[in-house]
């Protein structure tokens, strides 16, 4: 059972608004860079960078971050996740880094991402942008930019499909199996 929450158009609009909010909050794009969390966050970061470019006529650097090695459940999981590429092609020291992820849930991925980011330098600040905030935080973490708040049951799943991975853009709520 899947229920569509956002379609292609909705996702575009949400990302446009987040792009504007990033520009507004940072009073432009000076010193701003985007870092997407593998994998969904990386696609979203690139799209937001394009939208910022259209509005401000400025390129903001985009990086990608894999958090596998910083997860707090590594010693529990039997199968370890594939370690994808981390690519931060700029000096993050003193930069305003906007972390970008598709779904904010327990907050544990964001904790891991912040630790990973700190190993690349000391940013001036870290902000967080997410497409979906589904609640159920287990750590004191909140997003600065939220695409859509969606109340969920803990057992439900949020499925974000993006065309970069060969799907049609959409976000759906998958009901828990009985």
């Amino acid at each position: 059972m899947a229920k569509e929450l956002l379609n292609k158009k909705d996702i575009e609009r949400v990302l446009s608004r987040i792009a504007y909010e990033i520009i507004e909050k940072n009073k432009g794009t000076e010193n701003v860079c985007l870092v997407g969390i593998q994998r969904g966050g990386v696609h979203l970061a690139r799209r937001i960078a394009e939208k910022i470019k259209i509005v401000e006529h400025a390129d903001v650097p985009v990086g990608s971050l894999d958090i596998s090695l910083y997860r707090d459940d590594l010693s529990l999981r039997r199968d370890h996740p594939v370690v994808r590429k981390t690519d931060i092609p700029f000096d993050s020291n003193g930069r305003k880094v906007v972390l970008i992820d598709d779904v904010l849930f327990t907050g544990r991925s964001i904790r891991a991402a912040m630790d990973a980011l700190m190993d690349y330098g000391r940013p001036a600040c870290i902000q967080l942008a997410v497409l979906i905030d589904r609640g159920h935080r287990e750590l004191p973490i909140r997003a600065d930019y939220v695409g859509k708040n969606i109340p969920t049951a803990k057992k439900e799943k949020i499925d974000v499909q993006l065309q970069e991975d060969g799907f049609q853009d959409c976000v759906q709520l998958v009901k828990a199996k009985e």
Binding site: L74, S75, K85, G121
Partner: peptide
Amino acid sequence: HQILDTASSFKDVLKRDIKKVPALRGK
């Protein structure tokens, strides 16, 4: 192939300033 793919990500870690990751902390 999975071991080699993961190793290629670790090779990137070895090029960083901070070459240590917390993956096996406590072991």
